[in-house]
Design a protein around this nucleic acid. Structure first.
Lengths: 144, 144
DNA sequence: TTTAAATTGATATCCGTTTTCACTTTTGGA
DNA sequence: TCCAAAAGTGAAAACGGATATCAATTTAAA
């Protein structure tokens, strides 16, 4: 079995939670497109093939993915939480196009190191960070 | 007259808006403590001395401060918008203590430069960015 | 002063998130 | 296999912060 699915099942078992048909379906749908989707996005996508699955279940399952570390919540400032499948991906930050909403990912070791230095300077034990660049992407005419 | 107040009055005038007693009061209250306060925070503070001023007016006035550049909105992920008085301050980013909620400010030219380089690499015309470090501050036992 | 236009404050509405609850499904033991 | 306990589900309600509404009030220019 794929390690990601295994991780999820292990988390469920460890918490005394159950494996269900709905969770399997949501797992597959989210893994196949876990690129910064909102609960609504995923719900609508799943509904096409599985009209019986409710919004609340999608919501709760995305929370589960987050709790077990397969997914992370993203807040890009439009008042909607987005979920990103992060299993098997390196840490990264985001570029968000303010016109079309496209999200790209970047990583930069130098910035990470500088962040740590700053946290240390302020006596912080850094647990996480958020770093987003907003602008106009090249296809939206970033050159104009 | 202080230049900040002048800037506000000039903005009002330019937009065909009026100067009112409430706006003056909110201006003073916010300027005297414009450190990452929510609308609720400021409303409650103002209400102590001016019980007649409503939440909606505080909300609208904070929006005005933001529009004219005296304030900026901050989103630290707790689902509440915070406003910060930025007039006369250098650009900076934030460290947020996940235990006590304290917010410190930092600035780092090297990180700014690296950001620009990344945006350029992706063909983005960067318009803004958000950079927050989350962790445990020294008074909350960041050393433990 | 007069008057048109903007403002105010209480309240209603919006909208994404989260909870509730009656019914269903899963799971492990008999 | 069957049963019972516990968790899950989905529809709908509740929630919470942000925003809009609207009648009454205030401002400011003539």
């Amino acid at each position: 079995m794929e390690p990601d699915r295994q991780k999820f099942l292990a988390y469920l078992a460890g918490q005394g939670l159950k494996s269900t048909r709905q969770r399997d379906i949501i797992f597959d749908a989210f893994r196949s497109d876990g690129s910064h989707v909102s609960t609504e996005d995923l719900y609508l996508k799943i509904r096409r093939d599985h009209p019986g699955i409710g919004y609340a279940t999608v919501h709760r399952t995305l929370k589960l993915f987050t709790e077990c570390g397969l997914a992370e919540e993203r807040h890009f400032g439009d008042g909607q939480v987005r979920y990103e499948w992060v299993a098997g991906k390196e840490h990264h930050d985001h570029l968000v196009c303010v016109r079309c909403g496209a999200v790209s990912e970047f990583e930069d070791e130098d910035i990470e190191a500088l962040q740590q230095r700053i946290a240390r300077r302020y006596g912080f034990t850094m647990t996480s960070h958020r770093h987003e660049l907003y602008g106009v992407c090249s296809s939206c005419g970033g050159e104009d």
